[in-house]
Amino acid sequence: MNIFRLAGDMTHLASVLVLLLKIHTIKSCAGVSLKTQELYAIVFATRYLDIFTSFYSIYNTLMKLIFLGSSFSIVWYMRYHKTVRRTYDREQDTFRHWFLVLPCLLLALLIHEKFTFLEVLWTFSLYLEAVAILPQLVLLQRTRNIDNLTGQYVFLLGGYRGFYILNWIYRYLTEPHFVHWITWIAGLVQTLLYADFFYYYFQSWKNNKKLQLPA
């Protein structure tokens, strides 16, 4: 564990907690993409199957359980909670997220380190996580006026990605065999998807204005 990975994990945790808090306390999921949340639930469910097969640390297991629990809770709130579900922007959140799942699965079947069930699913989760934010970014662009919490959620998620890149550079320099092309390229693609959002986020922050994305 290094400081960059810890900072990345903490911003990731904060992003999820901000979103859960928003949904739980103000009973609204306006501006939140259910498609993205479902994709994250799939990402965690396929990546963390190894809690049954390998143990790394209490920290690792605990965080996995938190991410699994929170992502499925958010999906549950948005789909089934009687107040929250009515605030969901169903008409705007039209991204065909299943069209992301299939190509990622095919890619994982073609490009992986080992052809085993767990390894292919783990690789699939990396590819899917890279593109899972797309429905959320499209929804933000469509609704344009973004409340602070939704903006902070995406900002914190982007921060998590940035710290993970620093973590990989650090590990590459300090651990002799740390070379993981699949993880790095998927992670880099994911981080680049946030670049446009970050540009407008900082513009609005600099001008002390409410975040607005161009149509």
Binding site: F67, E113, W181
Partner: peptide, 10 residues
């Protein structure tokens, strides 16, 4: 050669 060390990440 890649080892499984990246799996300790989240």
């Amino acid at each position: 050669v890649a080892r499984d060390d990246v799996k300790d990440e989240l």
